[in-house]
Nucleic acid binder design. Structure first.
Lengths: 227, 227
DNA sequence: TGCCGATTATGATATATATCATAGCCTGAT
DNA sequence: ATCAGGCTATGATATATATCATAATCGGCA
């Protein structure tokens, strides 16, 4: 389980910049690491919040069960993101679930330990706060952006999101099903599929099985902006 | 300007629970208090973030300018809410605006001072973090709730929100225009107006000028839930 | 006082989106 | 190997929502 090398761990500079070496050592020896296969559930809505979970590699989705039995995807998280941060300091139980969209590895740190260090180390607490703020900020901005768009704009937006922010390439394997795209943008599966087809027919994207290639990024960008 | 009595101020217990008396005194003597008339802008998108702003009384809206020149209302804030918290620890400039929906009073505290106390006082930093988390959590939940509903459900939801969370009464003066309701739920003004008319025709609400009375809360609740 | 622009209101119509139906395909389970 | 179920896909249709047009009302302001 405990296979990573803490010496070169990016968490050290990313997260523990203001923490003393001895405290880091203590955390390091007690951290746990987990591997999840694509599709596996990492956090279940209702679970007690006991750990601070950091995504070392892979891709996950945060989602919740809407009132009408449909799932709603809240956001996606990339490596270097803190997965369990939404209500981690204000709630006792998770109000959302997390599942792996690709094979993923998490590094888990006991939450009480983090809290205890933070209580005694204001600079550390401030740096956590900053990161949590940035993360929720990004979620909110994406929400607002998606909200003001219509179907085509939303699809364009999410495609550009995966292309630019996740894979940094104009060609990539879509990590989500059409259904999950629908759950994120708040539209029906059929319309997601139809819209992708339309974009393909217009030569804006190419679809080869699970592979999406953005053929005309400029037009896709315009569609995203003009709704 | 500096008219409030810090002795009995709710901020003291709400916000400064872990701060020493001398630090509180120092903050108290330097805080500033501002009065805003209904409609006045409190924070302008792009302003530098210099103060920690706390709403003593009144009601405000947080909003931003969407890409298509339309405004989007992000959320409403009530007394005891911290108005300037969204990106306050992660950004240099406000990414949203704040305006008074009712005559409002704010208590402003120099942000550097708050930061400096937090850096030296982990417990205080943690308590801020908890409050920010709760606030953004609530915003997110409302977003998700509204997102999964259709027009009628969204209108019902916002009416119940004002009735229960803001005014604690089944009869209240709507603090927002139809246009602002539309900007919050992400629909057009005409449809907001039409929907309110329909609810009135069905006897579920009564409209007397700016006064809304929820006549059949149970049905309104059902509309909100069943979308 | 009277005018102007914004807000509320309503109707007619166009458009966007959801729903329902059907089918091929793939994958996992038996 | 076969079946069941989920995912992708597409079309027809119903419904929800936006857009456009018009008008009444209200409040600020010259």
């Amino acid at each position: 389980m405990n296979t990573c090398n803490c010496e070169g761990c990016e968490l050290r500079s990313l997260f523990f910049e203001n923490v003393s070496n001895s405290e880091i050592e203590s955390i390091c020896t007690r951290k746990t690491q987990f591997h999840y296969k694509k599709g596996e559930v990492i956090i279940q809505e209702g679970d007690e919040i006991q750990e601070f979970i950091y995504l070392k590699s892979g891709l996950v989705k945060l989602y919740r069960n809407g009132s009408n039995d449909k799932q709603q995807i809240i956001c996606f998280a990339l490596p270097l993101d803190f997965v369990s941060l939404l209500s981690i300091f204000s709630e006792k139980y998770y109000k959302y679930s997390v599942a792996a969209l690709e094979d993923s590895v998490t590094c888990n740190i006991n939450l009480d330990e983090v809290k205890s260090i933070a209580s005694q180390n204001g600079k550390f607490a401030m740096s956590i706060m900053e990161k949590i703020n940035k993360a929720t900020d990004n979620i909110l901005v994406d929400f607002l952006e998606v909200k003001q768009k219509r179907l085509f704009g939303r699809i364009a937006y999410i495609l550009l999101y995966f292309s630019r922010k996740v894979y940094n390439s104009s060609s990539f394997e879509l990590p989500v099903s059409r259904k999950e795209m629908a759950e994120y943008i708040g539209m029906t599966v059929e319309n997601v599929i139809r819209t992708l087809s339309d974009l393909r027919k217009d030569g804006i994207i190419k679809i080869n099985g699970p592979i999406i290639e953005i053929a005309d990024e400029e037009r896709l960008e315009r569609i995203s902006e003009l709704s």
